[in-house]
Nucleic acid binder design. Structure first.
Length: 320
DNA sequence: TGCCAGGCGGGGT
DNA sequence: ACCCCGCATGGC
């Protein structure tokens, strides 16, 4: 019973991307799965209920699929926003180019932008990163999507896997544990309930309040702490004021910036300001989200750019 | 085989 | 304001 979506519009984003110096390969490949990106073409989920999906090539040719009667201009705007085409990252790159952790990244990866998602998906991503290695977290997520197996059929363009909705999860929460989420499954159920009941407001409303208040609203869900809330705000609303500092960033920044671990958050915010969370995400890409010991070795050796041949944010789509 | 991981909340001091 | 523990699982 896959939803059938019609082709409702086509658009070429190549010129807009070039003008903004956005590298669509980097945008589409980073933190993506094989079922959504194949190295040339990505499926970008714009909406879940009812579904809307964009099929985008790394050159910027995009086709928009949705229910009949959907507004193509509106979908085009959402796609451009999801790809970060409207984001002026020059302030971030300016700081990064003089930073001991991200200077090489600024030089080679200036065209990367966060590919933003719904709040619900961002929270799933963030919860799966809790107290788990990068690899375990993303493996959980891939299994979760496949386990619920929600799909849409795109007119003339095959089927696409969709993430489960929060209603899907509440209807059959057992698939969470079956996907290896462990105790995180309870947190995901709490998130689903909070979104369903409106106790956690939708994106538009969260976007209107201050960063601290947005964080507090998300933290009202049991199991969602500061790290998870901040990561979700960055991944969904592109709100970067508050850095999701975990023990990995804490240890790396402590070393690179020469401050005690207890001072890392303050120092990070002093250096990165409104780009704080973006800098954290960039660091995970730059160091391939390597486990802490290896990441510290990479830092010592000055190997501060993604390296081929391992499961990493930049290469995830080749493996999962 | 254990041990630990990009967190969190609840308990202690 | 700290410190410490348990927690489900997967990965090595």
């Amino acid at each position: 019973m896959a939803a059938r979506l019609r082709l409702v519009g086509r658009v070429d984003l190549g010129e807009a991307a070039a003008r903004r110096r956005v590298d669509l390969f980097k945008v589409l490949s980073v933190y993506n799965f094989s079922f959504w990106f194949d190295g040339a073409v990505a499926r970008v989920v714009l909406e879940l209920e009812p579904p809307a999906v964009a099929v985008v090539s790394v050159k910027g040719e995009a086709a928009l699929y949705a229910q009949e009667g959907s507004d193509p201009a509106e979908l085009e705007g959402r796609l451009a926003a999801a790809l970060g085409l409207a984001e002026d990252a020059s302030g971030f790159l300016q700081v990064a180019s003089g930073d001991p952790l991200l200077a090489p990244f600024a030089r080679e990866w200036g065209g990367w932008r966060v590919r933003s998602s719904s709040l619900w998906w961002a929270l799933l991503v963030a919860v799966c990163q809790q107290n788990a290695s990068f690899r375990q977290g993303w493996s959980m997520l891939a299994r979760l999507v496949r386990s619920y197996g929600r799909r849409a059929e795109l007119e003339g363009a095959g089927e696409v896997l969709l993430p489960p909705t929060h209603r899907d999860v509440l209807g059959d929460p057992s698939r969470l544990a079956a996907s290896g989420l462990g105790y995180r499954a309870r947190t995901v159920v709490g998130v689903a309930e909070a979104l369903s009941s409106g106790r956690v407001p939708p994106e538009e409303e969260l976007a209107r309040v201050g960063a601290e208040e947005a964080e507090a609203l998300l933290r009202s869900v049991r199991g969602v702490g500061s790290y998870t809330a901040r990561l979700a705000l960055a991944l969904s609303l592109r709100r970067y004021e508050l850095p999701p500092i975990d023990r990995w960033v804490r240890a790396i920044a402590s070393r690179a910036y020469g401050v005690g671990e207890g001072e890392v958050e303050l120092e990070w915010r002093r250096r990165w300001g409104r780009w704080s969370a973006l800098a954290v995400l960039a660091l995970t890409v730059a160091l391939d989200a390597a486990p802490l010991r290896k990441a510290l070795e990479r830092l010592e050796a000055g190997r501060l750019l993604p390296e081929p041949g391992e499961v990493s944010p930049a290469q995830l789509w080749r493996y999962y």
